[in-house]
Design a protein around this nucleic acid. Structure first.
Lengths: 143, 143
DNA sequence: CCCTGTTGTAACAGTAATCGTTACGATGAC
DNA sequence: GTCATCGTAACGATTACTGTTACAACAGGG
């Protein structure tokens, strides 16, 4: 599977805005963020648009436009970001319904679903343990 | 992301073989398993081929050919199956290297990697808690 | 020795998601 | 009115998964 970097880029964008604002600027442009993340401004705008819907970021239009945080970095967990970009489930059941006449075919869906739910819960629990403030601290410590 | 059902199908195949063998048969054919999983025999053979490399299954060729388990269902965890089919990482870093001149661009890779490692570890820990015997028990209990 | 059923594997099409890119209208401070 | 930026549609390239067809390799039974 071509692993997806959406969470990485989204965290990058928010962290960048947070640091930029702490240095006294009001808003950050998608152009600036894209330069730091080495991607295209549209990719940043698309992602920040989803983060805005989730209440994590906001934007101003017109001249002097750009992006800002709604909450402080310390109050945004990676789980918040993960849920904002609504990734599909990590695992899927059968593409086509298995044979219901077969014991295994009939019962394996619910059985695997229960496991997958627990796995996703563990994944979310782990993402919730890190805030963007933690990420920024790591970044500045390494610099 | 188009979630992938490889783990589901692999677990289905192994569980099916396990139950079939307990009922007194020596080997199961990819055709039989494919019928239960409602997919194509080649899909099953491809997956079982990977599971054989990992030492979880084996096959016989020629007439009276088919697939069998190498270990008992109770000694195969979903983590074993997961690792056997070698899924790519759940999360990826930036597709293109971020700007190393930027503090955030320079430090965010290692910071996110550390988090992703912990998340994957949690995911694996959770998968390791369930054996195919557990899955089969759930299936038979629901029937 | 031939027949037969099954595995092993290559090859290809269809689907879907991500990523990058171009293009252009909408907005709002100056 | 100008201009920088957002908002968003549209397209192509890439990648992975899934299903399918095709066929050679194999090995047991007659």
């Amino acid at each position: 599977m071509s692993a997806n970097s959406r969470l990485t880029i989204a965290a990058h964008a928010l962290t960048w805005i947070g640091l930029y604002q702490r240095r006294g600027h009001e808003v950050a442009t998608s152009e600036q963020i894209a330069t730091s993340a080495n991607t295209n401004p549209v990719v940043i705008r698309r992602l920040l648009g989803e983060l805005r819907k989730a209440g994590l970021a906001d934007s101003r239009r017109g001249a002097g436009a750009g992006w800002m945080l709604v909450r402080d970095l310390a109050e945004i967990t990676l789980l918040d970001v993960y849920q904002a970009i609504e990734p599909g489930p990590v695992f899927a059941l059968h593409p086509a319904t298995p044979d219901p006449e077969c014991v295994v075919g009939h019962g394996i869906g619910p059985a695997m679903s229960a496991v997958y739910d627990k796995v996703e819960a563990a994944l979310r629990r782990e993402l919730a343990r890190t805030t963007l403030e933690d990420v920024l601290r790591d970044i500045l410590k390494a610099a």
